[in-house]
Design a binder for these strands. Structure first.
Length: 274
DNA sequence: TCTGGGGTCCTAGGACCC
DNA sequence: TCTGGGGTCCTAGGACCC
């Protein structure tokens, strides 16, 4: 059985406290952002509701803040449940509740459905999770592709086999910035790219990663967004080499419009073993 | 929402190799 | 010499999340 915590107005200091309280309950915790976490308490003997009361009390003591909790057999349902009673709530959602609790909800409440998918679904007459569940897998896969179509089919039924992830390595490290005013001056763009690259490299070095793929992102004043990537032959954390790759990417973009945002990302990461 | 920043995953197409 | 299929890597862009 898994929990999800949603916790309002969290600050990083409080976030630490929050996570440490959870870890006193079980090591099976998945960090899901500054103010959210999943807890797998299926191995614990206590009745889940009594554990929840204990956790709420301790979090209140340590941080002075309240949290909303969802209890469910999987992460998807736990997250949706936590959102059902907003401040300081506690909601249990079981497989048997899917039809009466999940299906009446608007599709946007389903994790993974954003504004684009919402609009697309409404175009084909689907407004609730129940209506989504009434669609065939074939239709959804045809419309949304194999992976996402499958996901929607399962998720609309409350099915989620995703495991709890207690530890993971970053896939990429990036920095981006939006200019106060859209810029045309190449010098300013270049200087900013160099600064962002420096920050990315510092971050990589601090956490012991090397990269092979450098991607830059440019957003113009009309919101057109371009990316250019360069993969180099060997993993590196050398600033000069990474900056060269970033500038090689920049050269491939025609800067004929004012630039609103510039960013740089290092991916294809490898942990340095020392 | 006239739109901030740091992430993840997916898809499609092209290049290249066997 | 020509053709084709499959696998892998890389690139670019899109959608979503907190």
């Amino acid at each position: 059985m898994l929990f999800f915590f949603l916790w309002y107005e969290a600050y990083s200091a409080a976030s630490q406290q929050f996570k440490s309280v959870l870890l006193t309950i079980t090591p099976f915790m998945e960090d899901a952002g500054i103010d959210e976490a999943f807890l797998d308490i299926s191995e614990l003997l206590d009745a889940s509701e009594s554990i929840v009361v204990r956790i709420k009390t301790r979090i209140k003591e340590k941080t002075g803040l309240t949290c909303s909790i969802g209890i469910a057999p999987n992460k998807l349902l736990a997250k949706i449940a936590s959102d059902m009673q907003k401040p300081d709530g506690l909601t249990t959602l079981n497989e048997g509740d899917v039809e009466c609790q999940l299906w009446p909800l608007p599709i946007r409440k389903l994790y993974g459905v954003g504004p684009k998918t919402e609009a697309h679904l409404k175009d084909i007459g689907i407004e609730t999770i129940g209506q989504l569940a009434a669609s065939s897998a074939e239709k959804l896969i045809e419309t949304f592709g194999h992976s996402y179509g499958h996901y929607l089919y399962d998720a609309s039924r409350g099915i989620d086999d995703s495991p709890l992830v207690t530890h993971w390595e970053p896939k990429s490290i990036s920095r981006e910035t939006t200019f106060q005013e859209d810029v045309k001056n190449w010098q300013v763009i270049a200087r900013t790219l160099a600064e962002l690259t420096k920050e990315v490299v510092a971050d990589m070095q601090e956490h012991g990663y090397q990269t092979r793929t450098v991607t830059i992102k440019i957003r113009f004043s009309d919101f057109q967004t371009l990316t250019r990537a360069k993969t180099i032959s060997d993993y590196t954390d050398a600033e000069e080499e990474i900056r060269k790759a970033a500038f090689a990417c920049l050269k491939r973009i025609d800067l004929n419009k004012r630039v609103r945002l510039i960013g740089v990302r290092a991916s294809n990461l490898e942990k340095v073993t020392s």
